Amino acid sequence: MPTSNNPPFPAALRLFSAAVIIVLIIGAGLFFAPVLVKPRWPWAVTPFNARFLGGFYTAEMVVMAALLFWNRWSPGRLVLVMAFIFTVIVSLASFINLGYFNFERKAPWLWFLVYLGSVAVSGWFLWRARGRPSAKGVALTPALRSYMPVEWAVLGVYGVGLLLFPLLFSSIWPWPIDVFHAQVYSAIFLAGAGGVYLVWRSAPREELLVLGLAQVLVGLFAILGLVITDAAVHRIDWRAARTLCWLALFGWIGISGVFKLVAASRYFKARRAETDPGDTL
């Protein structure tokens, strides 16, 4: 049941979420059906970039589905903040690198329409709710509360590095990354940093769960996409230091998500125990 502490979102936001999910299904096709989607993508993508982008869009699709499913301020607040950060930075990177787009095709125009529209809608809803406090949070364990500032700081610093010094900070990636893709990928880390910071400040159960799920999927699909793509093209040096660093980075992101899922599951179990104490004599 909706409460004043965690009210439902308006129907317009659910409609927006459903539309975004439809768009993300196309993006997820870069992972699951790259041969079909790559020729229709707004710019030319290499096999590794295609699978990486597709994996991230798959994770984002699941997160947006959570917003559509719960339709509450929590986890909607988390999803909207992360979506706003991501779309703003990707839009900025796209404008900086207009040379990658062939505007004689429809796809680039649709790309900018979708991203600028997402910036406007998510920003508008966040602005309208700017005075609303977060839903009631749970008490994080001391270890998790101490760990999360380190987590969002690392994600934030690396994201800023990819945005401002793309060639330097992308040098640990197993495949060559150009300036445009490095700046687009910076949005993933900065959105993640924003999400971790938000949950660290106040940790509603639903937001802890959704953030953990997002991190697990990002880490999983990034590594899985690399393995699948290299099985076909054989371009990755798996013993190279940069490959090991990249695997460690995304493995760490995924494991961080597992910690949050475990913590969230404990809180949900505790709540169920409170509401359903079982038979009494």
Score class of each variant (00 low, 15 high):
residue 225 G to E: 04
residue 247 L to F: 06
residue 247 L to A: 06
residue 231 A to K: 08
residue 245 C to W: 05
residue 242 R to C: 00
residue 227 V to Y: 13
residue 249 L to P: 00
residue 230 D to C: 12
residue 247 L to V: 05
residue 228 I to Y: 11
residue 231 A to T: 09
residue 232 A to I: 12
residue 238 W to A: 01
residue 222 A to Y: 05
residue 234 H to E: 14
residue 241 A to P: 01
residue 220 L to I: 12
residue 226 L to M: 15
residue 235 R to I: 08
residue 250 F to E: 01
residue 225 G to Q: 08
residue 226 L to F: 14
residue 226 L to V: 13
residue 241 A to V: 08
residue 220 L to P: 06
residue 226 L to N: 11
residue 218 V to M: 08
residue 239 R to V: 06
residue 251 G to Y: 01
residue 223 I to E: 13
residue 231 A to R: 05
residue 230 D to M: 08
residue 244 L to F: 02
residue 250 F to R: 00
residue 246 W to N: 03
residue 234 H to L: 12
residue 225 G to N: 07
residue 229 T to Q: 15
residue 247 L to N: 01
residue 229 T to P: 07
residue 246 W to S: 06
residue 224 L to R: 13
residue 221 F to T: 13
residue 231 A to W: 10
residue 242 R to Q: 06
residue 243 T to K: 10
residue 235 R to Y: 08
residue 243 T to D: 09
residue 231 A to M: 12
residue 250 F to N: 07
residue 220 L to C: 14
residue 247 L to Q: 04
residue 234 H to Q: 15
residue 238 W to H: 04
residue 243 T to N: 10
residue 240 A to T: 07
residue 242 R to I: 01
residue 243 T to E: 07
residue 228 I to N: 11
residue 240 A to E: 10
residue 225 G to V: 06
residue 246 W to R: 00
residue 244 L to Y: 02
residue 226 L to C: 12
residue 233 V to W: 10
residue 224 L to N: 10
residue 252 W to N: 01
residue 226 L to R: 08
residue 218 V to Q: 05
residue 252 W to F: 05
residue 252 W to H: 01
residue 237 D to M: 08
residue 240 A to R: 08
residue 237 D to N: 13
residue 242 R to V: 02
residue 236 I to A: 12
residue 222 A to P: 00
residue 220 L to E: 11
residue 247 L to D: 01
residue 237 D to I: 09
residue 219 G to K: 04
residue 232 A to R: 15
residue 251 G to T: 04
residue 249 L to C: 00
residue 237 D to F: 05
residue 248 A to Q: 04
residue 233 V to S: 10
residue 227 V to L: 14
residue 227 V to E: 11
residue 235 R to A: 15
residue 225 G to D: 13
residue 218 V to E: 07
residue 218 V to I: 15
residue 246 W to E: 01
residue 236 I to S: 03
residue 251 G to Q: 05
residue 243 T to L: 03
residue 241 A to R: 09
